[in-house]
């Protein structure tokens, strides 16, 4: 159990009036409130700390206890022993606030954030949780159902096909529990999509480069290319230039949350010049060059 100096957290001294506490709390809350710092873990942690400090210092009874025992470890230990004894004889302690970020010191002193409802200002929304989910590009091209465990609870989520790398989705109410009947926070899941294929993605469109032998490039023909959904036969026009592109409409990535809609697949041809030519082939090329 580490001593936490709530006065220091709020930047006030021990003689601070309730008005000073309120002013100091609001000053820091405006800086670190999760609504003002979306996806900022450090700000959320700081906000928890100042909330905790405010919870104690704005309540005259709690502040008195804190002033009495908080500074002196020996007395705090005695208080802890008495509290443990009381806990054994009565099971009526604690409320729902079991979040891991609430300091052990605060919990041991006051048994969780069960403080009475003092009107609007006593209600706080729970902390937003952030999680990262890794998917493969091929997985991301199909709608997925996954079960996540958040704070011991299992949540089933559906990940729509077409989710973007770095995209964050919000699962409302699955964040930290609110304080004093405040609403629960939200769970934000950010997706990291790894690409192990030769196909590159930009939004809903896919891009790939395929090798084309000189003869097919000159005379035209048919080739088979790999797409995310399998192999596709592609007709190559005669006299195809190196670096030229063709668009395969609707063969790209699924459009997020738009069932049946797909982006396009762009294929770039890389014409390969034959090597290790035989004498006969060289002769034929020479003839060609003179024709």
């Amino acid at each position: 159990m580490e001593f936490v100096d709530y006065y220091k957290i709020l930047g006030i001294d021990k003689t601070a009036t309730p008005k000073d506490v309120k002013t100091a709390y609001r000053k820091f809350a405006r800086k670190y409130h999760p609504d003002l710092n979306p996806n900022n873990k450090d700000a959320n942690k700081n906000f928890q700390q100042i909330n905790e400090a405010n919870e104690v210092l704005s309540d005259p009874q709690k502040r008195k206890k804190y002033d009495q025992y908080g500074k002196d470890w020996q007395h705090a230990d005695e208080f802890e022993k008495q509290k443990q004894y009381r806990d054994q004889s009565s099971n009526s302690h604690g409320s729902g606030f079991s979040g891991g970020d609430f300091s052990d010191f605060f919990e041991s002193m006051f048994g969780g954030a069960s403080g009475g409802n003092r009107g609007r200002q006593a209600k706080y929304r729970g902390e937003d949780f952030n999680a990262e989910l890794h998917l493969d590009l091929i997985d991301a091209s199909k709608t997925q159902k996954q079960t996540l465990t958040v704070n011991g609870a299992k949540i089933r989520i559906t990940i729509p096909a077409g989710i973007e790398n770095g995209q964050t989705i919000k699962i409302s109410g699955h964040g930290g529990p609110g304080m004093n009947s405040g609403p629960n926070g939200d769970l934000y899941i950010t997706f990291t999509i790894a690409n192990h294929t030769k196909i590159k993605r930009s939004g809903d469109n896919l891009y790939t480069t395929v090798d084309l032998d000189l003869y097919t490039a000159v005379l035209g023909g048919e080739i088979t290319i790999n797409t995310l959904s399998g192999q596709v036969k592609l007709k190559v026009a005669s006299e195809t230039q190196n670096g030229s592109k063709v668009k395969l409409k609707g063969k790209g990535f699924p459009v997020y949350k738009k069932e049946g809609q797909f982006g396009d697949l762009y294929v770039t041809y890389e014409v390969k010049i034959p090597t290790n030519l035989t004498d006969r082939q060289k002769t034929l090329f020479t003839e060609l060059s003179k024709s």
Binding site: L36, P38, E164, N165, G166, Q167, N195, K200, R201, S202, G203, Y207
Partner: peptide, 20 residues
């Protein structure tokens, strides 16, 4: 906040495009 969110989305989009 709206501007910040738009910029964050743009950063993600540009990062993804950069990977091309």
């Amino acid at each position: 906040l709206q501007r910040m969110n738009a910029m964050q989305d743009e950063i993600i989009m540009l990062r993804n495009r950069l990977s091309l």
